[in-house]
Design a binder for these strands. Structure first.
Lengths: 329, 329
DNA sequence: TTGTATGCGTTATCAT
DNA sequence: ATGATAACGCATACAA
C-alpha cells in the first residue's frame, strides 16, 4: 500500500494525499474521499520514505551502561513514557560499561540519523569529550553533569554530604566502599560528599578504611570482606550504591554482625531492595523516573528549536531515606 | 556526504561505489580509489535510503511489559548481546502491562518495517492471536508458549511442581499467592504445578489459602496480609514471583513471624533480591539471559531463511535454588 | 568490469 | 485548491 495507490483509489493526485496527511490543505470533498480510502485500506505511510525526504526519523537513541539496574530501569521508564506520548521511538543501545562501545553507538546513531540522543553516561574520557563536542545531533546527558552540555543530574555531592553528616555523628570508626572516581557522579562526588561531611564533624577517615570496587553485588561482598578483615572494629559502613550495600550486608550477616547495633550501613539510590531488605536500608532517594522524563522533554525541546541553542541543565532533588540499617545515636 | 559525492571524488559512477559497498564486484584499481575517498570522508550510507530500496532495516522490535524487572532485564541483556553482534539495532517498546499498548506496538513496528520482532508477552487475548496470526514479519515469542508460533519459554509447570513437592513434604498448612491465570506461564502453569504437587502429596489446599494479586512488591505485601489475616496458622507460603515474595517477607517480619521456623516461603525467578535477602529466598532459577540470546538467534535465523518456514520452539532449563527461607523437614 | 537509467515512497516546488 | 514534476540517497537491471 503506497501513497500512489491511495491517490488512485480516491481519484486524486498523490500530492493531494500527501497534503491531506500533512498540512491538511485539501477541499472538504476530497478530504472525505481520501479519508475513506485510507480507513478502508489501513494505509500507513512508509516512515523510511518520509525520513529520506524530510530528514526526520522520530527515533531517539538511548545509550545506557547496563539494562539490569534498578536506577537505570527507572530512568528508562521515565524516558519511554515521554517519548511514546510524543510519537518517538526508542533505539536502545547497551554498552556494558564499555567506553569504546559508548563511542561506537554515538557514531552509529549518527548514521541511523536519530533525531536526538540521551546518553546515560558514566565515565567521560577525552575521546568522549572530543566526540561530543563535534556532535551534530541534539544530545542530553543524563545522570552526570558535564560542562558545556545539556545535562540532567542529581546533586550527588550534597546528598552524600547530608547523609554523611548523620552517619558521622553516630559512628566511631567508619568504612567506605566507593566506585571509580572516573565516574564523576557516583564515584567522585559521592565520595567527596561523604568525606567532607566526616571531616566537618572531626571524624578522621584513614585510607585503609576506604576501598574502591565495581558496581555489582558480588563486588560489594568482596569489598566488605576485605574491609572488615583489615578493620574488624568498624561500626559504620557507607556504600556508594544499594547494590554494593546488598552484597556487603550479606557478608556482615555471615560473620554475625548485627545491623545496626554492631555495624550500621547505608546505601545510595533507594532501590527496591533497600525497602524490603532486612533490616531496611538507609539510603538516598533520587527521582530517577522524573529525571528520565525531564531528559526526554528537554531533548524534544532541543529538537524542535533547532534555531536557538538550548543548553539547559537541571539539578534534581533528592531525599534522605533513613531506615532501620542505621543508628539514631 | 552521499554516494554521488563519493563517486565524483573517486572518479567513478555511483553504481560502482554501490557495488563496492555491496557485492564488491569492482576492479582492484577502482576499489583502491573508492576506499581512499571513503576513508578520508568518513562516508556512511544512509540507512534510510538503503531501507527504502532493499526493504531491510536491520531493526528488531522488542516489546516488553515493563523495563524495571529483574527477569525482563536479564532477557533484554541477552537479546542486546546477540543483536549488537549481528549488526542489528534494538527498537524498544514498553507496554506497562497494557494489552492494547502491545497491539499498538505490534502494528507500529509493521510501519517501521522492523526485520523481526521479539515479543515478551504476558497475556494473550483473542485480539492478540488474530493480529499475530496474520503477522507478516518474523516474530519470536519469549517467555510464553503459544501454539503455532516460535517460542522460547521455560517449563513453569514442571519447575513449580518440583518445588511444590519439596514444600508439600515439609508443610502443614500452605498459603499461595499467584497472579492472573491469563498469564499462562507465570499465572496458570506455576499455579497448576504447585497445586498438582500438593495434591500428589495428599495435601489439600483450600480456596481460602489461595489468593491472586499483581506483579508488584506492594501487591505481595497486601496479599500476604490478607492471607494471614484469614489463615493465621499458615506455616508455608508460596509466591508466584520473587518480587511478590519480597513484599510478603516484609509483612511476615512486621508481624513477627520467623522465617523459616514459623513460616517457610518460596519465590520464583532467582532475582538478585532472592540471593541477598535475609533469610535468602528459596526460588527457581531460569536461564533468562540465555533465553534472550536464544530468542534473538532464532529470530535472525527466521529472518535469513525467509524461504523455509521456521517454527521452532525451545524449552529452557530450570534449577531449584533451595535456600534459607525454607525448612528441610 | 563499468556506467546509465530507473524506481523505492515520500514531500516540496511550482505552475495552473 | 490541485496536479505535474523533481528530489531525497541508494541499489539493481540492463546495456555497453
Amino acid at each position: 500500500m503506497t501513497i500512489n495507490e491511495i491517490a488512485q483509489l480516491a481519484g486524486v493526485s498523490r500530492a493531494t494525499v500527501s497534503r491531506y496527511l500533512n498540512n491538511g490543505y485539501v477541499s472538504a470533498d476530497k478530504k472525505e474521499r481520501i479519508k475513506k480510502v485510507i480507513d478502508e485500506t489501513g494505509y500507513k505511510p512508509s516512515t523510511f520514505a518520509q525520513t529520506l525526504r524530510s530528514k526526520k526519523t522520530n527515533y531517539i537513541g538511548v545509550i545506557i551502561p547496563k539494562i539490569n539496574s534498578d536506577s537505570i530501569g527507572r530512568m528508562v521508564a521515565g524516558i519511554t513514557s515521554v517519548l511514546s506520548n510524543n510519537n518517538y521511538q526508542l533505539l536502545l543501545a547497551c554498552t556494558n560499561n564499555n567506553a569504546s562501545e559508548e563511542l561506537k553507538y554515538l557514531n552509529l546513531f549518527k548514521e541511523n540519523q536519530v533525531d536526538g540522543i540521551i546518553l546515560l553516561g558514566t565515565v567521560f574520557t577525552k575521546e568522549h569529550i572530543k566526540t561530543l563536542s563535534s556532535y551534530q545531533v541534539p544530545i542530553v546527558i543524563l545522570g552526570q553533569s558535564l560542562e558545556g552540555f545539556s545535562c540532567i543530574y542529581s546533586n550527588d555531592y550534597m546528598a552524600a554530604y547530608s547523609l554523611g553528616e548523620k552517619l558521622a555523628k553516630t559512628s566511631n570508626k567508619t568504612g567506605m566502599i566507593f566506585v571509580t572516581k572516573k565516574d564523576k557522579a557516583v564515584g567522585f562526588n559521592r565520595r567527596k560528599g561523604f568525606i567532607d561531611a566526616f571531616k566537618a564533624n572531626q571524624k578522621n577517615i584513614n585510607q585503609k578504611q576506604i576501598i574502591e570496587t565495581a558496581f555489582t553485588l558480588e563486588a560489594g561482598y568482596d569489598a566488605c570482606k576485605k574491609l572488615f578483615t583489615d578493620n574488624p572494629d568498624l561500626d559504620t559502613l557507607i556504600c556508594a550504591t544499594d547494590t554494593i550495600a546488598s552484597g556487603a550486608i550479606k557478608y556482615l550477616r555471615e560473620i554475625g554482625k548485627k545491623i545496626p547495633e554492631d555495624v550500621q550501613i547505608s546505601g545510595f539510590g533507594d532501590s527496591a531492595f533497600s525497602r524490603v531488605s532486612y533490616p531496611s536500608l538507609t539510603t538516598v532517594h533520587f527521582y530517577y523516573e522524573e529525571a528520565g522524563q525531564k531528559a526526554s522533554s528537554l531533548l524534544l525541546r532541543k529538537i524542535n528549536n533547532k534555531d536557538e541553542e538550548i543548553r539547559d541543565t537541571y539539578e534534581l532533588d533528592y531525599s534522605l531515606e533513613i531506615r532501620e540499617s542505621t543508628r539514631t545515636n
